[in-house]
Amino acid sequence: MSLEALLPSAIDGLMLGFVYGLAAMGLTLIFGVMKVINLSHGPVIALGMFAVFLLFSSFGINPYVGVLAAAAIGLLFGTVIYFVAVDRVINAPELTTLLATFSVNLMIIGVGTVLFTTSPRSVDIDLGALRGSGVTILGTHAVAVVIAVLAAAALYGFLFRTRVGKQVRAVANNRAAAELMGIDSRRMLALAFGIGTALAMTSGALLSTLFAFTILSGGTYELKSFVIVVLGGLGNPTGALVGGLVIGLLEGVLTVFIPVAWVPVFEYLIFLVMLQLRPAGLLGSRA
């Protein structure tokens, strides 16, 4: 295969990697703060897609305004999920919280299938493209990268520059000690779950501007998120972003040399190798 495809493929992969990274940041934040493996992550990503789609198709709201709305809905919805499904089992073994979030997964998929069916939907938006030297950068992809970077920066600003963010980190580091310092850990855990869900819905909202989707589409990105989280470091949002870029780049570059169908095999191979050789991930866990 000609190397002419290498540059455009690498650029496409990297751009998609930012969105992957954003999705994985939501998953890893929740795990890092409360040690909960959130199996409702995929359906929540799909809900982000449908939030934009419904606002756009029903009310004519610009998809990028819809992305903001999806983030706000995600924050609220995540908090509700926390209090309904996670809060009462937060101190139980990890398998219990895993099952709790899996039940949320099933409920969202069930209700979503009834409401939206499994028919593919798409948000029809065209922002033009930049072209040159065999490379085409679609406007929608470029905007998705910018929003993903802004969302990641906002998360860091929140976690490291605000008082509430520092409280969330304190709860993540040592919940008992944080409570002794007067921090309401329950509130912080709910907030962290809400932010994680908001990030997932934001990534879903961005993906809806790039590709067609169904209510089941989140599953693919949930699996990718797990690979990215392990690659970047469990509980480490920076690692998730880096992991997203690495997976995106790999997806883009590998497809030049091997059939596309083999790419997931390599992704899961990386997943296994990382778990065996460097379980803390590239950047270490919980930075």
Partner: peptide, 16 residues
């Protein structure tokens, strides 16, 4: 089935 991102194929096609 269900593929929505054809860019990897299209990049290959363009190169070929």
């Amino acid at each position: 089935t269900g593929t929505t991102d054809f860019n990897p194929f299209i990049n290959k096609i363009q190169a070929a």
